[in-house]
Amino acid sequence: MQPVFTVTSAQWAAWMAAFLWPFVRMLALVSTAPIFGEPTVPRRVKVAMAVLLTVVLGPTLGPMPGTPVVSAGGLWILVQQVLIGGAMGFCMRLVFAAVQAAGEYISLQMGLSFASFFDPMGGGGSTMVVSRFLHMLAMLLFLAADGHLMLVAALADSFHTLPVADAPLSAQGWMVLAQAGAQVFNTGLLLALPLVTALLTLNLAMGILNRASPQFSIFAVGFPLTLLAGIVMLELLMPRLGAFLEPRFAAGLAGVADFVGALR
């Protein structure tokens, strides 16, 4: 006689909790994090990545709370996991937002504020060319520095720092996230400062030249000269972009860990 495999409702609820709650946190991070959460990545791929991470990391996460999944407490835990995972991905995306802000500053100074195009990877809005170019370089540097793997490691560590539980989240964590967002403009301006300074000096020189020689057509010469100087400065910036962004990637990952630790 063959043995009969039986599963009780308690076992089924425990298995569902052990998979569902970690899966929701991982899916929220995959949906918002750089590289993983780009709009060009199909939704099925994002869900498959979250399922794969859950299957791989699930056995190492320890016991889940005994709260039933289909209950008010289970729904509250579900909402918490969405907030935690989404905020972790958003915290890392702030680094790339700073790069895009630098591209906006440079475009405005170069006179390329009108050179925008439809950007499906940026949510379907219009994006300046320089901003999109720097963003793509930042993503390539992030992959080259194994930032995506370190982000997955930070996700795995978050379950040990902040286990799945029905306890309320600390408001201090959201304050840490807000303070990290304030660094977007500072970092973007710091990256764009050499080009902005050089182009501003060039514009001042052409203004003085136009004042000294009124017959000099500043409008006919100024725009091509500013554009050429901006392209040359961008070419000089490219070899040093990696050295500038690698500490920012490390600071972004440290910010993710600080955010998770402050939520306890």
Rank of each mutant, 00 (worst) to 15 (best):
V7Q: 04
T8A: 07
A13E: 14
A13C: 00
F19W: 08
W21S: 03
P22L: 07
R25V: 12
M26H: 10
A28W: 09
L29Q: 10
V30H: 12
P34W: 13
I35S: 15
F36R: 14
E38L: 15
V41N: 09
V41S: 07
R44M: 13
M49C: 11
L53K: 02
L53C: 11
L53P: 09
G58A: 09
T60E: 10
G66P: 10
V70L: 14
V70E: 04
W76N: 12
V79A: 11
V82K: 05
I84Y: 12
A87I: 01
L94K: 13
Q100I: 08
E104S: 00
Y105I: 14
Y105F: 12
S107Y: 01
S107N: 02
L112R: 15
F114D: 10
S116A: 12
F118M: 08
M121A: 15
R132P: 13
H135L: 11
M139C: 04
L141T: 01
L141R: 03
L143I: 02
A145R: 12
G147N: 09
D157H: 06
S158L: 12
T161Y: 00
A167N: 11
P168F: 14
S170I: 02
Q172V: 08
W174Q: 05
W174N: 06
M175P: 00
L177P: 03
A180T: 07
A180I: 03
Q183I: 09
F185M: 15
T187M: 14
L189C: 10
L191W: 05
A192D: 08
P194H: 04
V196E: 01
L200R: 13
N203C: 04
N203W: 00
A205Y: 02
M206W: 08
M206L: 15
M206D: 05
T226V: 08
A229E: 09
G230N: 07
M233T: 13
L236T: 00
L236R: 08
L241W: 07
G242N: 11
L245W: 05
L245G: 06
A251E: 14
A257D: 13
A257V: 09
D258L: 13
D258Q: 14
F259Y: 15
G261P: 00
R264F: 01
